[in-house]
C-alpha cells in the first residue's frame, strides 16, 4: 500500500481535524507529515532538504500565522516554492482566495463542503505519481 514517493504535509491547528486527515491519507497509502503550526511545518521543511513533501495541505487560520504569510515563507525558498499547496479552510472571501492564488496556491477548498475522499481526489490531481492501491 505504502508509496514512499508520495509525502503529504498537513498543516492544521485543530488536532481532531489533523487526526482525521492523517488517518484518511494513510489509509489511501500516503506518507503523511502532520503539523499543528506553521512554525513546525517550516522546521520540518528546513530539516528535510531533499525528500520534500509532494503536496501541502494547508489550513488558512493557524495559531502562529495565516495562509498568506505561510505562502510568503515558502516563496523564499526555490525548492519549497515548487510544492503544490491546497488550502482547506473555513471561509473563503473573494479577496482572500484571489490573494492566495496569486501567491501560488493551487486550489482553495471549503472544509465542511467536502468529504475527505473528495479532497484526496483533488490532492491526487496535483501529484506526479498517483499511489498504487
Amino acid at each position: 500500500m505504502s508509496n514512499l514517493n508520495n509525502l503529504i504535509m498537513v498543516v492544521e491547528d485543530e488536532s481532531l481535524l489533523l487526526e482525521a486527515i492523517g488517518k484518511k491519507l494513510q489509509r489511501e497509502g500516503y506518507d503523511v507529515l502532520l503539523c499543528t503550526s506553521a512554525g513546525q511545518a517550516v522546521d520540518y521543511l528546513k530539516n528535510m532538504k531533499e525528500n520534500l513533501p509532494d503536496v501541502i495541505w494547508l489550513d488558512y487560520y493557524l495559531t502562529d500565522m495565516n495562509g498568506l504569510e505561510f505562502m510568503d515563507l515558502l516563496g523564499k525558498n526555490e525548492n519549497w516554492k515548487r510544492i503544490p499547496v491546497i488550502v482547506v479552510s473555513n471561509s473563503a472571501s473573494e479577496q482572500k482566495v484571489a490573494a492566495l492564488m496569486k501567491k501560488g496556491v493551487k486550489k482553495h477548498i471549503l472544509k465542511a463542503d467536502y468529504r475527505l475522499d473528495e479532497i484526496v481526489k483533488i490532492i491526487e490531481s496535483y501529484l506526479k505519481k498517483v499511489p498504487v492501491r
Partner: peptide, 16 residues
C-alpha cells in the same frame, strides 16, 4: 465559521 470546524471533524470521522 467557527461552527464549521467541529462540523468538519464530525463529517470526516463519520466518513472514516
Amino acid at each position: 465559521h467557527q461552527l464549521r470546524t467541529p462540523l468538519s471533524a464530525t463529517k470526516w470521522f463519520a466518513e472514516l
